[in-house]
Design a binder for these strands. Structure first.
Length: 705
DNA sequence: GAGCACTGC
């Protein structure tokens, strides 16, 4: 600890923080910023008039860093030093340094907008630009300029080299302090411009084998885009390694590493290799920030990453392979220099690197903003127009208006854009707006218990069902599992039935395993459901122990889950599909109609003539090979009609509080015009150009600083 | 008849 670079800057940091409400700290990896900044301020009395908060984008980081700090200070975790993450608050009245996820801090500011309990707020890893961090940045700016909060708040923001100036500018040119890191030098090897074009998996393979044959010992970390490519490369690497002449090179093992890998296989990368054996770790960007693998000396960087993007014009998500940013490329390279000098092989020429964006396009420019806009509306910030909220990178009008329309259709805001009482209740729930609206409706219709289960299952859905790797596919076919089928009504109902069966086994771990369900995922669902139930308890009309009655009612009414489906229809009023005549394609209803299909993984059942229901609600639209509705549920026309009437009344001018499109809006000194016609299109073909346009806007703004 | 990177309340 004594030799951490940041400690040499203690005086300078204190002096700067003393004089300035906001300070940006550029701290490279190994600088010790995450553990030391809070302690420096604590030592010098900043914790006397309030707690020092340090936010982290990830739960594991909040826990592990606070543990380190408690250890360094020689105190019990949970006393002077503690942490707070969802489901776990290990702080007490004694706590002076509190590590928390940025999501938890956002929840806290919902009940105490001035955050008066804190004397200092440190936003750590702000350069990752998570959606939550970006909203916090905007809130912090209001807070330090606020006249109501007199208590002298200090805000520290840690960022990456390439982005510090921008953050400083956002906070009225606040000072920027540079703290060097403690990484070993990493030699960067670019691909030659004249090298022949080649498939990137082949390139990875060739480069990795070259390193193995020519270079000294040390593990190799290879950054790929996804599970498929990883599996292909792993197989090919294993074959090539077997083909090498025995004794000519050291032994080698190849390990895949990605998010959907079962935890027990993930941890393999943390156990050291046998002696005289090189490890090839083939990873997605989990290995960039979330997981740190020791022993890596060589990094191979494909230059690509898979990113999820939202297109507000079509309401559709897509998952695209895009070039990484310079910040990301440097982060990847840094993984080679943690224990000794290393090498990073970039599979692209340096001119390609120079063309990368400085920083990754922030999440706030790539997401549906309904939840965030509802959150901001519920804060009741004085004199605030949501379309003019001061973001570090403002989302497009189109994206904000899309959010407003969605919120209007599910009754969270009225026709003037004002938050409703339903909307306020929704904001209290840690769910996406469609699901929180479903819970409120379900409460009215007497099926809250069921809706709680569906909402909980859907909010962890991705980690739940078995991986789709070929191995497990085979396994599943050999011993077919007997999961319920949603009685033909669709996926929401299936999720409910699965949970109910699990509950009947008294939440048995073995039952999960036998049915190919991820144990940790299911446990998380149970926790989420409990948390949601507690929040609903405070506001619910009906009592919650009615779960059994609900089920009995459903049995009596022939298992049609009518009330639940009706509640879902209210929650997903902005996500309804109407079947086309004579075939099973659907058209989405709403302000931007799309032609879509039910995702093949759905359990929605066709009738005897092979015809699907006339109306369905869907959880999300995802464009892969074609536009699909994922997670659908049958609804009835009678429930849809009133929604269509409401849709016709929609007036975006009123909704956005008078500021319609085409209004001039200044950003810095340069006015930006948003032409009306951008909203008129929305076919999937537009999508690529739309993402490009978003990137261009982002670049233009950066160039304008 | 397709398949999805990573987080978080």
């Amino acid at each position: 600890m004594a030799d951490l670079p940041i400690l040499q800057f203690e005086e300078k940091i204190l002096e700067t923080v003393e004089k300035n409400p906001v300070v940006v700290i550029i701290g490279e990896t190994g600088s010790g910023k995450s553990t030391q900044l809070s302690q420096i301020l604590h030592r010098h009395g900043y914790s006397k008039r309030g707690t020092i908060a340090v936010t982290q984008p990830r739960r594991v980081a909040a826990v592990s860093v606070s543990r380190r700090v408690a250890h360094e200070l020689g105190v019990q975790l949970g006393s002077e030093v503690g942490y707070a993450i969802r489901f776990e608050d290990r702080t007490s009245d004694l706590t002076k340094i509190k590590y928390l996820t940025d999501g938890v801090l956002l929840r806290e500011s919902l009940s105490n907008p001035d955050l008066t309990q804190y004397s200092v707020i440190i936003l750590d890893e702000a350069h990752e630009r998570s959606l939550n961090t970006d909203i916090l940045l905007g809130l912090m700016k209001r807070l330090v300029n606020s006249k109501t909060r007199k208590s002298n708040l200090r805000v520290l923001i840690t960022s990456a080299t390439l982005d510090g100036e921008k953050v400083s500018k956002f906070f009225s040119d606040c000072p920027v302090l540079n703290v060097p890191g403690k990484l070993f030098p990493v030699e960067i090897v670019y691909r030659s411009e004249n090298a022949p074009k080649s498939n990137y998996i082949d390139l990875c393979l060739k480069t990795a084998i070259d390193i193995h044959v020519r270079e000294l010992e040390g593990d190799i970390l290879i950054f790929m885009t996804g599970q498929d490519d990883i599996e292909k490369l792993v197989t090919q690497l294993e074959q090539r390694i077997q083909g090498l002449e025995e004794g000519s090179v050291m032994d080698a093992i190849v390990l895949p590493l990605h998010g959907s890998l079962p935890p027990e296989l993930q941890v393999r990368v943390f156990s050291p290799p046998p002696p005289n054996c090189r490890r090839f770790i083939v990873a997605t960007n989990v290995a960039e920030t979330s997981l740190t693998v020791d022993g890596v000396v060589y990094v191979i960087d494909s230059g690509y990453v898979k990113q999820r993007q939202y297109n507000p014009a079509s309401g559709m998500y897509s998952l695209d392979v895009v070039p990484i940013s310079k910040v990301q490329a440097n982060q990847r390279a840094g993984r080679a220099g943690r224990t000794r000098p290393g090498k990073c092989y970039r599979l692209y020429p340096s001119i390609v690197y120079n063309d990368f964006l400085d920083a990754t396009v922030p999440e706030i420019l790539r997401s549906s903003l309904a939840g965030s806009v509802l959150y901001l509306k519920s804060l009741d910030l004085p004199d605030i127009d949501i379309l003019k909220f001061d973001f570090l990178d403002s989302p497009s009008f189109e994206s904000l208006e899309d959010a407003l329309k969605q919120l209007y259709l599910i009754d969270a805001i009225d026709e003037n854009g004002t938050i409703t009482s339903v909307g306020r209740t929704m904001a209290e729930l840690p769910l996406e707006p469609s699901l929180s609206r479903t819970l409120i409706e379900a409460d009215k219709l007497g099926c809250l218990s069921q809706a709680l289960t569906v909402a909980a299952m859907l909010s962890v859905e991705t980690t739940l069902l078995p991986g789709r790797s070929k191995g497990s596919e085979k396994k599943r076919k050999q011993e077919p599992v007997d999961l319920p089928d949603g009685s033909g009504f669709g996926d929401h109902i299936q999720l409910l039935q699965i949970y109910n069966l699990w509950e009947e086994t008294d939440f048995s771990v073995d039952w999960c395993k036998n049915n190919n369900l991820q144990v940790r995922g299911m446990m998380f669902v149970k926790n989420v459901r409990k948390q949601l139930a507690q929040i609903m308890q405070k506001i619910a009309d009906s009592s919650l122990d009615g779960g059994r009655n609900e089920r009995r009612r459903d049995r009596q009414s022939g298992h049609d889950y009518k009330n639940l489906r009706k509640a879902l229809c209210a929650g997903y009023a902005n996500q309804i599909g109407e079947r086309m005549l004579r075939h099973n394609g659907y058209r989405t209803l709403g302000f931007k109609s799309q032609l879509v299909q039910v995702h093949p993984s759905s359990v929605l059942r066709a009738d005897d003539d092979g015809i699907l229901p006339n109306y369905v609600i869907y959880h999300e639209l995802i464009a892969t090979s074609r536009p699909f509705m994922r997670n659908v549920c049958e609804v009835e026309m009678a429930w849809v009609t009133p929604i269509l009437k409401k849709l016709q009344k929609l007036d975006i001018r009123k909704l956005s509080g008078g500021s319609s499109q085409c209004e001039e809006r200044t950003e810095g000194s340069r006015p930006i015009l948003f032409p009306k016609e951008v909203n008129a299109v929305g076919s999937p073909e537009d999508h690529a150009s739309r993402i490009q346009a978003a990137r261009d806007r982002f670049l233009a703004r950066k160039g304008n600083k």
